[in-house]
Design a protein around this nucleic acid. Structure first.
Lengths: 341, 341
DNA sequence: TTGTAAGCGTTATCAA
DNA sequence: TTGATAACGCTTACAA
């Protein structure tokens, strides 16, 4: 049905070996024959069979990406970046969604990585031990998570939190809450750390830990009630969806954003979609994906490496940027009922 | 490095052929040897090389999905459903994002479909001719688009529009707008048709075509201004993102939703995220994806086929459902300035 | 029920 | 510079 290399060789009057070389290593074959082969390939609409090629070369030309939830705009954004870069580099990508199930996640990595030249893993919640075991003897780059001895691309959560906290502090907020992500989330732990570091040394700043929430609007709704009860004037959320849920819940409960409470999200996945538009710590998601591909494919990120603040060659940290929009404003002056001095 | 079938055969003391059969057609081999082979495979951590298998069987065990934009929650939702169903059926899936570029889209289909047992194509805007040509001699199922002679899975746009229009009409709206999707979008054309059909026969209902907009919040912002200028009391948007943009723009311009203008979205990709929560024509996106996989893999959708309203065996139409939330309400009584009778 | 051997489409090795 | 030929890992006639 479809033309094979032998067909091309026959049509060009050369041996399959020469045809192969003419197409994959043109400099090794005489110009005249090369042209012959190229023409024959063109005419027959020849497409190399990548599976067959992979069998002998050991390289498949495929990558694979495992994420917990494609419906989460964070991962969709990363996937998009991965796609794009992989395509530019001539690779196809298997995408697998684990439905937030760590067992399935491991399964997918094992199954798919065998068919690929490398694997990108977004696994926020798998234990370090399991993840280390899973990624041993495999060509893997971790995305949005760091693990000793494994190459990874993350974002600078410490700096993100610092920017967020300083912004709130400058606006006069002195008691701010943190609505965290799911228990066990690696990036959530980093953001908590960052928050602690950032708060330290800032004058009279108190941080209230509101707990762990699902990284969704629904999770934010629950968080919103805690915000309302916590006598804080600002809250930083684990991500934008949670922030949106909080904002909405506060509105329902008659608290105004940002007049009564300021809200900051994380990731910048919802743009100006909410009302007021969400102030957020912006991550360049597609870049997170594309840098991961570069690191995976040649062991070093290509462009913009200088801008990275990573400690190690194989541990890249991408900058983040606070984008101030409508959900943050000056802290309300506290009621004069004695609590404040 | 990694165990091959020969290794397993050797370890089990049988020939490669027997080992192969023991693993892929167990009933053909004596229980005793079968157990031997299974144990050996287990011990060696044997994993069949799928590329090699594909070379002889002609089946790869892979599917591929091409979408215009993974960042669009519509396609992310479809992708998720495709994933899930494919995984259940033991298939891996290549996902490709064409960045809304029809040329690239065709390219991706050509490149990837060669490595897969079948291809799912979401191509809202490619011309019928080009799409027909591209999908000839290829095992393809079209998603959210119909083309004569090609199997497809779509949603019932006619019914969706009917539900939306009837809802507005029942609320007393008599002049409603339609903020369409991009020029050339297949589903947009179907929704326009559906709108016409639905409006027909409804008492004194007038439909105003507001034009074509990008299927994004930004597109909706532009549409919002036209809504404000059009002296209509309700608008149906091409999708939820556009609806959100419209709602936000109207708010900025001092028009209240739904008191002044009712807004209906399409797809149900944003849930209750907006404020007020968006009334929308809900599509079960993941189901759209999973049904497409079923149709692709065995020529007939498995479960729930009865519920489908498709005309043809290979043209499945999925039901939609109007979900009434906060952005629709009774039509405002028109000012008594003579226009109304 | 099992084994031998051929072949899937490609690249790599080796001589010529 | 080119061409036989042997692999890559697997499945499948065909034969035993």
């Amino acid at each position: 049905m479809v033309a094979t290399l032998r067909d091309v060789a026959r049509a060009a009057g050369v041996s399959p070996a020469t045809a192969s070389r003419a197409l994959s290593a043109p400099e090794l074959v005489a110009p005249a024959r090369r042209a012959l082969v190229e023409k024959a390939a063109q005419d027959l609409g020849y497409r190399p069979n990548l599976a067959a090629r992979g069998l002998t070369t050991g390289r498949t030309g495929n990558l694979c990406l495992v994420v917990p939830d494609l419906g989460n705009p964070f991962f969709a954004g990363v996937a998009k970046g991965v796609q794009r870069r992989a395509r530019e580099l001539g690779h196809a990508v298997f995408v697998a969604d684990s439905d937030e199930d760590a067992r399935l996640e491991a399964d997918l990595v094992e199954r798919l990585s065998a068919q690929a030249d490398g694997t990108l893993v977004c696994s926020p919640r798998m234990s370090d031990e399991r993840l280390a075991e899973l990624t041993a003897d495999r060509h893997v780059v971790l995305v949005n998570r760091r693990l000793p001895g494994r190459p990874s691309v993350v974002v600078d959560n410490t700096d993100g939190m610092r920017q967020a906290v300083r912004h709130l502090h400058a606006l006069g907020h002195r008691r701010i809450g943190y609505a965290g992500g799911p228990e066990g989330s690696w990036s959530d732990a980093r953001r908590r750390d960052g928050l602690k570091v950032a708060a330290h040394g800032l004058h009279r700043l108190e941080v209230v830990d509101l707990g762990h929430f699902a990284p969704t609007v629904v999770g934010g709704t629950a968080a919103g009630d805690l915000v309302a009860a916590a006598s804080i004037t600002a809250v930083i959320a684990h991500n934008d969806l949670v922030a949106l849920g909080i904002t909405e819940r506060l509105r329902v409960r008659g608290r105004s954003v940002p007049a009564d409470v300021s809200v900051i999200g994380y990731d910048d996945t919802v743009g100006t979609l909410g009302h007021p538009a969400l102030t957020t710590v912006a991550i360049r998601l597609a870049r997170l994906g594309s840098v991961a591909v570069d690191l995976l494919l040649d062991g070093r990120a290509s462009t913009g490496r200088a801008a990275a603040t990573g400690a190690d060659e194989d541990d890249i940290s991408l900058p983040v940027e606070l984008v101030v929009r409508g959900t943050t404003g000056p802290a309300p002056t506290p009621p004069t009922d004695g609590v404040s001095r």
